[in-house]
Design a protein around this nucleic acid. Sequence first.
RNA 1: GGGCGAUUAGCUCAGUUGGUUAGAGCGCUGUCUUGACAUGGCAGAGGUCACUAGUUCAAAUCUAGUAUCGCCCACCA
Length: 924
Amino acid sequence: MDKTYNPHELEQRWYQRWEESGCFRPTGKGEPYCILLPPPNVTGTLHMGHAFQHTLMDALIRYQRMRGRDTLWQVGVDHAGIATEMVVTRQIEAEGGKRDDLAREDFINRVWQWKQESGSTITRQMRRLGASADWSRERFTMDPDLSEAVTETFVRLHEEGLIYRGPRLVNWDPVLQTAISDLEVVNSDEQGKLWSIRYPRTDGRGDVVVATTRPETLLGDVCVAVHPEDARYRDLVGQTVELPLTGRQIPVVTDEYVDPEFGTGCVKITPAHDFNDWEVGARHGFSPINIFTPTAAINDQAPARYRGLDRFAARERIIADLKLEGLLIEEKPHAMVVPRGDRSGQIIEPYLTDQWFVKMDQLGRLGLDLVESGQVEFVPGNWINTYRHWMENLQDWCISRQLWWGHRIPAWYDEQGKIYVGRSEKELRARYGLSDDRVLRQDNDVLETWFSSALWAHSTLGWPDPKRMASEGFERYLPSSVLITGFDIIFFWVARMIMMTGHFTGKVPFEQVYITGLIRDSHGQKMSKSKGNVLDPIDLIDGIELEQLIDKRTSAMMQPHLAKRIEKTTREEYPNGIPAFGADALRITFTALAGHGRDIKFDLARCEGYRNFLNKLWNATRFTLMNVGQERLPAPTDSQLDTLSRWILSRLSRTITEVDQALADYRFDLATRALYEFVWNEFCDWYLELSKPALYEEAEANDPATALATRHTLARVLETTLRLLHPFVPFVTEEIWQRVRLPAGVEGDSISQMSWPLAQATDTAAEADAEWLKTVISAIRSARTELNLAPGKPMPLLIQGGSEQDHLRLERFGDLIRKLARLERIETVASDFDSAACATALAGELRLLIPLAGLVDVAEELARLNKQLEREQKGMEQVDKKLSNERFVANAPPEVVDKERRRLEEHRNTVSELRKQIQRLASL
RNA sequence: GGGCGAUUAGCUCAGUUGGUUAGAGCGCUGUCUUGACAUGGCAGAGGUCACUAGUUCAAAUCUAGUAUCGCCCACCA
């Protein structure tokens, strides 16, 4: 084995072998365990959030597979309507073409072609990370069978009256020219302006003043509203005012919606371009006046002077005209909320169009019930509040998009505009008796992407086709066990899956939802291209040179002027680029950081620390192999095991229990920590060191049984530990395990197919012995360092006092203490021995004396002892205070009081010992 | 405006139902190339647990309030 752990080569080697062996497929035996991958966008590349979530999913899948569960990790990719259409459109434009020059069918062919070439980036990257998914069952949301599920869903919902089409005000993206759902609108706080405009009264008795942030919409005003109780405007109600620039007269109405405190208390009402105004207009029976074209230019409803101007130009001209007519009273800065499309970043217009909607009242109630009743459980539990709040305030879901790429809506129109919905044109002609000479035209729109991903849980298991459902294991794998995802798609996806799977199958899609935090940079900033702080998980695995990293971060920027600053900070933060940590180090860093309910600041130093940990494991293996050889060792019986071996096996068992518990609670951080501490602080720091003396030649000659037991235990503990670590760091554990399995006496082809270790009974006697030994050795080492005694210099140790058990232990472990604390010899001295010329360390009642023989100055030793004394006294006082409180003694449980009493006793002893020694020393 | 969360060592975080002297990693200090590992060993320094009041024999932990910082949701022109 190499002296240093080198992830690159070994990681390349193992994935392919695993995948080819088919060991990631469900076995069909044992209790099913299933995880659904939230299908990433086909346009996507693996980002830190994916890598994090995939690591958690893979750790669970591998863990449960080892425990004998029948695991299915259902993976797949989403067709991502808008995102994909944008990518391919950009590609066409880069070639000098235009999307609109292509026929719909040709464009769709281009998309499929693009998918063929570039659509598998992310699944390739998942393999690099070690994701043990069943790729033979990988699905794409536009696959024929999933598309069939989509059509079936649409048709059935329509038949049930849960889907309808109608003219409604929707969120319209004038650049992409499609409707989007409420969820796809992000409200951004921006600095705008508020204009006050005068509307003259037609009766000539002055005018009213309205305030608006969108003066161009005035062209579509239908009335002015005031609050019914507003005394100022009582004489105005029922009158009309003149709408500037239009020559129209509009009435004044009263409506509760108006806040008399805001502005002048008069509101212009534009039902076609504002969601509130729509409601107000409807209450008062006004028809909305739409003034925009689909690209948000002024249409023919407006006076000729403004027609054809886009929304921003129209605003400027209207302001100018109002000024000219003396109707503009005031213009002032105004903080406002601007709706923008989450994909395009463009300002969204409320716009009146015909769209398809899913009714949400019934489905929403179902979705809420399934969670409230505990059939779906959120982890951490408080996410239920977020979910509940949203489910209780659901709006109907706008599912149609004016795009080409996606599932085309299964609705056809005849020449009269009558709508027919059906699974296909053929089915529908048969059903409605429409002869072939009747012309039917299919709806041009497609369904939004989330409509198909909402079906992911059951459509990937063959629904609605009974034959496929049987062969794919619909009954067996639904509901899935746990969904691991970020809070950002609780509404987009989690809620909709619960509703759809619940409605169509009567089952829940998953039993638990584990909501992860967001991966941020080491300063807590969200990672984003414009901030230039994005880390690519693949770069952490493979490493990247500084110049390449800068290039990556500053190329293809939306705002090129930021490039310079990004380059500067990148140079400062990564002067040597990023080293190759390997997939395993990245994975275990993620699991170590995965606490509950908190965002994660990703710090490269952590990743480096875990890379070092794997190096430690690697070298512990080298040590083990050097000492146990390559041959299968005979297993000692329990009675042949030495104390230290029993100790480390006991600690190992405790570690197994801890990891099991942590994973049951989704505490990946605690599981990782338990393993880290066991491997480093117990196995490497102590067991390996303590095993060395037993393996020395002369020791082996004296005590061959212990040497053999030690060898076997080394191999056994290491092999078991590798299995415990495997779900977290699959590659390196496989590599090492292949070398360790033989001496450990284990049969199997791959660690990924081995069973999960079971915790054995613990051995508290052995644990107590080992703790005693560690305390004694540490006390001697500490004294030696504090006295500046050369670590290599052999010195004698004198033992004074101590219990019978101390002396029994000294007898048993004397050699070990001598070797590990680098002592020349250990000698017991009588209780009246004058220890004045010695440094003292205490281990319980046992006094450990190091003869100074003029080596150290007395003042230094005095200072050291005084420091200890101070610490002890402080502790003693605290305990004493507690115990002298009558109410504590009376009220606290007896075992707690006893414990405190014992502590007090110990403190007293130590304090008196220290005092004595200080006195002796001072008298010198 | 409503909701959720955070505040513990220089930095990043643990701290399970209240009960040893509040822990770890990174960083820092000293020291050691001892036959697994310098991506290391050994030893150490470092904290009024944001603040205030309360409950309790006992509070980092429970309650109320205050402050600061995040995030989500919401129709104020």
